[in-house]
Amino acid sequence: MYYTKGPVVIFGVLLPLFLFLAFCIGRNLSSEFLIAGLVSITVFFSSTSVSPAVAPWEGQMRTLERIISCPVDVKTIILGDVLASMAFGFIISIAPLLIGVGIKTFPTNVPVLLGGMAISAFCFSSLGSLISAYPSNLPSTIMMISSLVRFPLVFLSGIFIPVFKLPLWGKALAYASPLTYFTDIARYSYGLKPALPLHVDFAVLILYSILFFALAVKLHEKAILVRIF
């Protein structure tokens, strides 16, 4: 399950870039802060771009029934989608790192950054897959739902506004968002002061990954019936 299609590229690559440029222009921010933010937003958008699209496409192209007739279970299929989406997210996210290198902004802790990117890419892909369990074969419907989920998360996850500056309700929401924890890891990796201890960030991301993935499998098992009809 290895495709990159038009809408995926637009939503996954160009959008975060524009969003981010719009945000930085006319502000006086440190390059570390910028690159850390850019990495977060790119990982998030790129890894949530492929996985939501796969299921409705498979349904619409009617390749789904062929696949589920083979001796593989839904878990394996979803895992395949998620891993493909994760790989896509991870590779795309190398770009902001290179931009960082270009403007002489280097991460101080590479293993933590890459580890964080990998686990978050998996976590966000699973989230994407979970979103696509909505039983519709119209890619546009799923894309719309996924945008509805993704944009608020970006604004709430401390990329643009640090979490400690948010009002109480905003903080509550921010801590419910998995992206907050990766943003924290990215900050840390670029030598900035993190809001939470590192192991908490990782633990939460892993928990969310398991939760999203398990839920995605459960819901997809149900959704398949509607998709093949």
């Binding site: 495709y3 009617r62 390749t63 029934e65 062929r66 083979c70 001796p71 593989v72």
Partner: peptide
């Protein structure tokens, strides 16, 4: 899974991947 291993299915309305070649489709299966 065991049952699926011993059967072959030609579903009523189903497609191969349009962007893959015939060979790739068969090999993927």
């Amino acid at each position: 899974l065991r049952a699926k291993e011993v059967i072959g299915v030609l579903p009523e309305v189903s497609n191969a991947y349009p962007d893959l070649t015939a060979w790739q489709n068969v090999m993927f299966t």
